[in-house]
Design a protein around this nucleic acid. Sequence first.
RNA 1: GGGCCAAUAGCUCAGUUAGGUUGAGCGCUCGGCUGAUAACCGGGAGGUCCGCGGUUCAAAUCCGCGUUGGCCCA
Length: 1079
Amino acid sequence: MISDPIHPRRMDEEVPDQYEPRTVEETVSAHWDEHDAYERTKEAHADDPPFFFVDGPPYTSGQMHLGTAWNKTLKDSIIRRKRMEGHDVTDRPGYDMHGLPIETKVEQELGFESKQDIEEYGMEQFIEECKRFAVENRENMDEDFQSIGVWMDWENPYQTISPEYMESAWWAFSQAHDNDLVEQGKRSITQCPRCETAIAKNEVEYHQVEDPSIYVQFPLADHEGSLVAWTTTPWTVPANTFIAVDEAATYAKVRAQRAGEEDVLYVAADCVESVMEKGGYDEYEVEEERSGEELVGWEYDQPLAEEVPEHPSFVGAGEVYHADYVETDRTGLVHSAPGHGQEDFQRGDELGLDIFCPVGGDGVYDERAGKYAGQFVRDANEGIIDDLRANGYLLAHETYAHDYGQCWRCDTDIIFLATNQWFITVTDVKEDLLENMEDSEWHPPEARENRFRNFIEDSPDWNVSRQRYWGIPIPIWTPEGLSPEEMTADDLIVIGTRDELAERADQDVDPEELDLHRPTVDDLTITEGDTTYTRVPDVFDVWLDSSVASWGTLDFPGETDAHEEFWPADVIAEAHDQTRGWFWSQLGMGTAAVDQIPYDEVVMHGFALDSDGRKMSKSLGNIVTPHEAIEEVGRDPLRAYLLSHDQHGADLRFEWDGLAEMQSTLNILWNVFRFPLPYMELDDYDPGEADLSDVRLARDEPVEPAGAEGSGAGELSVVDEWVLSRLQTVEQETEEAWEEYAPHDALNALLDFVTEDVSRFYVKAIRERMWEESDSASKRGAYATLSTVLNEVVRLLAPFTPYLADRMYHTLDGGAETVHMLDAPTPDDEWHDPDLEQNMAVLREVEEAAANARQQGGRKLRWPVQEVVVETDDEAVADAMRDLEDLFLERVNAQKLTVTDQFEDLVEVAKPQMSVIGPEFGAEAQDVMAAVRGEPRENVEGGVDIDGETTELTDEMVEYDAKPPEGVSAAEFDQGRVYVDTELTEEIEREGYARDLIRRVQETRKRLDLDVEEEIRVAVDIDDERVAGFFDDRRDLVADEVRAAGFVDVADIDEAIGLVEDWEIEGVDVTIGVEPVDD
RNA sequence: GGGCCAAUAGCUCAGUUAGGUUGAGCGCUCGGCUGAUAACCGGGAGGUCCGCGGUUCAAAUCCGCGUUGGCCCA
């Protein structure tokens, strides 16, 4: 490799004064492109031990929103960190590209209204359109994700529509079949009659609708009268199979009259009154009461017997049964049609009743519905109500507003139908599911134990079939001539791979060329012996697609090596809605196919909500897009903002202020980063070459003798040692956080270190060493320390803010193409000194108290103080202060430190107790108070003078407060108290005024925008003789500090190039003029 | 209707595991510092720990019942 020997790839951009995310991100993006940084990074870790990450595939229906941005950012940070920890990380992104949502979008584009339209248009062409739609969306999303700096293998995403991926689904499903877990069965499913397919429960949306509400009489066959049941779905009455009662409830036989006619009715005793009212009965009488149990077994006649001749009349139909779902509201008797209702179905199934469902998938009655055949069910309601009325079985008819389910894609009211569907019977392996679940570690752990376990325990069989087009065709071939009822699992052929299909199919099939989508596979038949098998026309529920992602990512079973090496996934990371989604579907499929859970660890993060904690939605108009956020603050601040929040299940309330706050936090880092650069440049110091192996500790060895400079060895002061120790601690903390997949803990520890320790303390402490003009061991020590800190911080930060980290890396070092290919820094015991960290924490606390005391004493930091006394009982605190005395004095600008367990100079000040003094002295009490209050103890104890007389006071009359003497102010800290003597001396005044003058001259330089190196002439006119004298004593110091070549009169300052301004220093008027020296 | 989660300063969140005087950052305000300067530091104000009830010497924390919001399911 030919390269510049020092900085082969250093960016030559200027480092601007402000952190400008946009500039940083543009520069770094360009650099990444130019140097193939992503590819180099993967190559750098190609031989490391493997780490198998599996991306949960987002659905390709829309664009990246804040939630998906969060999700991918989290994944990206994990991948980057794992690489830096030394792993060859699988980073193949995925996309979920099949399913009804895309079909309905395409239908809308094409203006379709039903499956009929699709069939007329041509299935093949329609599927082609779906594919086009999915791929276009995918490409948009590729760009979205890359735009937030997600480094995944965008050249090679897994797509659920690829033949290799679809084969993974076939393979897993065939494994489930081999394990006897595939069966066909009738189930009551939620059907969208427009889409003509079953839709998943979680795809049903509920809205309020107005439905008929009818009370129907079911005439009893061998008793007088009829049973009364209530329903909002008249169209299900033709399929009525039984009436359900609560066997423990009480039912009443009511004889009632209306309009001169008499009815005998059975309803629950609690419901008599309301039913009578609904029915408009004038008079009624409860003749007898029976328990529900007694009613069980009674027979009744179908009220629409004539209209629906083929109504259920098989053995067991038309009888009363007990059911748990009965409640004694409305009538206490429940019309039950196992062909429709879900609970009805379950109970009917238990009772062994046949399932009668005269409605097709399009919601239209078939011929078994007799008179109603050919009508759409909802449209038939009216006719059915009329017929019931005509037959004399309609007791009441009104309307009812309630929540009813609609298809999430097309808003059509769903219907419940018992249809033949294909299932993976996960209920048969519930124990295995629970056991396999235990093999996964969750972050947070309680999510697995509470929510996930509950779901597994309650989960029904998995209906995997959909009567649609855009999906993975179900690879089941069934023998001709057998009805679903006659077929057993052994009669099925379930194909697992393309090769197997090519081998067994009657037609010529090239497995390499075969697109597994419909309609190509629909025409393939298999003949075994005399029997011809045809494929079932259904496609898979799209949830099955993603459930095989752990195999699909590895192209298994087409490719087997990677599977051998990697499977199962080391970690997956999704939001908590996936508990019931992808976390579950993978467990279900893993258990059904190979009796294993496909992932070892789960990071379950939260949802992105708006600032009020409400979900972001179009209807609320509160959506914030990642794009807007990036416009506002940039990619890195957005990423850091998202990652600084709890990643273990807690939702995020998005706040613009919080985002801006993160940007300013990163700006502090930027300032720390750029602060030393000009000095290092002047000294030709290369921060990339920083080396702590040849430094000496100032406190261990004598200070380098004058003249020995330039030897190269740096010298570390105690603050250097301290900040290096803190760095080790932070590295340890981040390591521990990453082990728990808690990047938020890692990031926050790191940012705290940067702001609290490096910026607020360390940089402040070393500034003067940086200003030293000549080379010195102390300066080199500071350079080496700060360079080390920055180099390692940059690598710790890289997974969170990849652009900013790389930008800084390329200025500081640039030895590699990118910081992301390097290793994460690890703590080094040699530099770890917890005692020193503890002592420094004490010092900082005391310093804070001292600053407080100074403020109370009205003495600003620029003016020295004579003495600071630290009073404490705590030996550790006392030791810490003695140990760090020099540093402390320097930082608080004090001349002397005293550490004591008892501050001797306190003055005890009297506080008169008026509740005692008042009664005792009466009219004189006010005088006593005045004489006592605020006096030192010795002035009070011998008695006080009242009108020339000495008056003795008892102990009860006076209490004493201990106060610092005049000129001393105090402030407390946790383990003690700090006293600061702010009394002035001439020496202090000299120093103070000089410093104030220097400060103003520097400010003037600043206003003139003079270069740091530029020499000036200074004019000072002080309106106070004494202070002017102080200044004369310190002229040399001032001249030195402000780079003054000489002093002149104010009148001599050329205001064309210089500046003259009036100031006030401690109440004294001062005029200061500055002009650059003309060369 | 059910399961799980959350509610603490104006805002974002720690603290709840194992009961013992509620903390931080931002914002506000007052002050300081100033060759990092559109940066930085310190002080101060600011709390019904969502409500009600219970257990306990003691509850933000444990228990029960609610309210509001989130996710999932019906």
